[in-house]
């Protein structure tokens, strides 16, 4: 049972990441592969502030969001000059640059050694220490993210985003400043991704740079492409499937180290298959 709770916590964290990435990739049509960097900002903010500066979980979460949003503003500003595949390539680059910072700024992040001993969240004297209690907290936070994303995409703001995706020139003729819209959605998405990072740091109690690599960004991207772009529910289903995939593979009987590689094979093959036969994913409304 404990193990199922563990998977459920991971699922809520990744669902949050997938939903927030979908705002950028699915709704606005910007193929960003930097999401793990924002996830990492949240995680590192929580880890550093809680272990070294005596912050509580919730204040550290807010600081993480702010740091992530400021970084997103800068990164998004540079990215706004590019389109399509160049956009993707430059966003690759930012993920690698941020990863290098986590790895090399050793005075603050302890580099490859990672940061151990991160505390559990505490609210009004109540500590979320067991997995089930943590699941409750992460589920609530992720429902908030889900709700915020749903609200965002159904608002007039969301409609402008979709219009940018379909035809940026046309919508700018109507007087919408598309650059600002793209920057705002990128920043919001990064801020919410930081929540997932804070949760992850506090849940696992240890983080190191290897969690926030380019591969992680690709993994999150695979979730939303599988579930279907431009569909919040699709993102959740994609996250669920890819979180359960290693368990399914283990159930089939692969040894653990091969199962880890088989997971890569399966999701690589899924990406190929989807691009060949169903580029909008399982339930998406937008084809890349």
């Amino acid at each position: 049972m404990e193990y199922i709770y563990h998977l459920a916590v991971l699922f809520t964290i990744y669902a949050g990441l997938a939903i927030t990435l979908d705002l950028v990739v699915g709704y606005t049509g910007l193929l960003s592969v930097t999401h793990a960097a924002f996830y990492g900002f949240g995680a590192y903010a929580t880890a550093i502030l809680m272990t070294a500066h005596g912050f509580g979980f919730f204040p550290s979460l807010l600081v993480g969001m702010v740091i992530s949003m400021v970084a997103a503003l800068l990164i998004g500003f540079v990215l706004s000059r590019f389109k399509d595949d160049y956009y993707a390539l430059v966003s690759f680059g930012f993920n690698i640059i941020v990863f290098s910072v986590f790895l090399n700024w050793q005075d603050v992040t302890r580099g490859p050694l990672g940061i151990p001993g991160i505390g559990k969240p505490e609210l009004f004297g109540y500590t979320f220490s067991s997995t089930l209690q943590f699941l409750f907290l992460s589920a609530v936070l992720m429902l908030l993210v889900y709700g915020a994303a749903r609200f965002l995409v159904s608002s007039s703001f969301g409609r402008v985003l979709k219009a940018i995706r379909e035809d940026e020139k046309a919508i700018s003729v109507f007087g919408y400043n598309t650059k600002t819209y793209k920057l705002v959605v990128f920043t919001l998405s990064a801020g919410m991704a930081a929540i997932a990072g804070s949760l992850f740091a506090s849940y696992i109690t240890f983080i190191d740079p290897s969690t926030f690599t380019l591969n992680e960004s690709v993994f999150i991207l695979a979730m939303i492409i599988l579930g279907g772009l431009s569909n919040v529910r699709g993102a959740v289903i994609g996250a669920l499937f890819l979180i359960l995939l290693p368990e399914i593979l283990r159930f089939v009987g692969f040894p653990t180290d091969i199962a880890a590689q088989m997971r890569q094979v399966v999701y690589g093959a899924l990406l190929i298959g989807l691009m060949l036969y169903r580029p909008q994913g399982l339930m998406g409304e937008f084809k890349l």
Partner: peptide, 8 residues
């Protein structure tokens, strides 16, 4: 994305 899948 397809070449990313093949790469993986």
């Amino acid at each position: 994305v397809a070449s990313l899948g093949a790469f993986t």
